[in-house]
Design a protein around this nucleic acid. Structure first.
Length: 289
DNA sequence: GTCCAGGGAATCA
DNA sequence: TGATTCCATGGA
């Protein structure tokens, strides 16, 4: 495969750290020069900031790099408008958006997002990244670029003979059986990913995702928001989001006792169909700042 | 040694 | 429906 290059000139909303460290993805790693390298589908790409421009270079299977980047980085969406709208809600939103102003929500592969967030359950980000890297290295396809070896995220077919024990040995812990069962369900067609991609009814898609082993409300919402399903109205509630929502708006003495339905209702009322974006600014702000 | 992590499933009321 | 408890693992 031939190396391709694409230069994104002076994007208004685009920051490498905000995009790759805000918790939505697990396969992008910072390089010594401050650029980031990542693998998605069968693409290996490095993004480097040059002045106010961003230089993408890498290899991609069938297709041109520019089109893939346009889609993956959600470049057709107007984030300036979204940020302006959310900033009007209150000063907390204004501050959190100011902190994460370069965030864009990636259109990640549905299958990879499902598995990644099943692994994320009761786990921490460095360890999630390690597990996903070992999964790819063990079962994915090898891609060489720029003198280094990279591995694609394994497809359901590439995992069809993997046992629960082998997942456990990769360090998945109690998530081994969930990963095994979900992979099996998809291979057997009990959940059809193409059908989910086509279905415009968010409730139906969410309910279907919830039938997968290891997919509960929070994981389902992360899949809906961070994959190419791209539902911006969902509001994934994890420990950090519960914490920040309680601190800012609810102020219960015991944050762990806050009712999830109360948080959901509040999010819907305040943020409406942009709740997912609001959630991401708040998550990143509370976790990093 | 203890606590915690982008929670889910099983169990019980 | 709603609340509790257990689930591996590695880093702080």
């Amino acid at each position: 495969m031939k190396e391709q290059q694409y230069i994104l000139k002076k994007p208004q909303t685009f920051d490498l750290r905000d995009i790759f460290e805000c918790g939505q993805c697990f396969r992008w790693n910072e390089q010594e020069d401050g650029s980031y390298t990542g693998v998605w589908q069968e693409n290996v790409v490095n993004v480097k900031k040059e002045g106010q421009d961003y230089i993408f270079s890498g290899i991609c299977k069938n297709g041109n790099l520019e089109e893939k980047i346009q889609k993956y980085f959600d470049l057709d969406r107007n984030y300036e408008e979204i940020k302006q709208s959310l900033s009007k809600i209150d000063n907390y939103m204004k501050d959190s958006i100011q902190y994460g102003k370069g965030i864009r929500i990636l259109n990640q592969d549905l299958w990879e997002t499902i598995i990644s967030f099943i692994i994320s359950a009761n786990n921490n980000i460095p360890r999630i990244k390690g597990i996903i890297e070992r999964l790819s290295k063990t079962y994915g396809k090898k891609i060489e670029w720029n003198g280094k070896i990279y591995y694609t995220f394994p497809t359901p077919e590439e995992l069809k003979d993997v046992t629960v024990k082998e997942y456990r040995e990769l360090g998945l812990g109690f998530r081994d059986i969930r990963m095994y069962e979900t992979t099996k369900m998809i291979l057997e067609g009990k959940v059809n990913l193409q059908d989910l991609e086509k279905n415009q009814n968010t409730i139906e898609v969410r309910n279907k995702l919830l039938t997968l082993s290891g997919v509960g409300p929070k994981v389902a919402d992360c899949i809906l928001l961070f994959s190419d399903l791209k539902r911006l109205e969902v509001f994934p509630i994890d420990v950090w989001v519960r914490r920040v929502m309680n601190d800012l708006y609810i102020q219960n003495k015991d944050e762990t006792k806050v009712n999830k339905k109360q948080i959901e209702a509040l999010a819907q009322e305040k943020f409406g169909n942009l709740a997912g974006l609001a959630q991401q600014y708040l998550f990143y702000w509370r976790r990093e700042a």
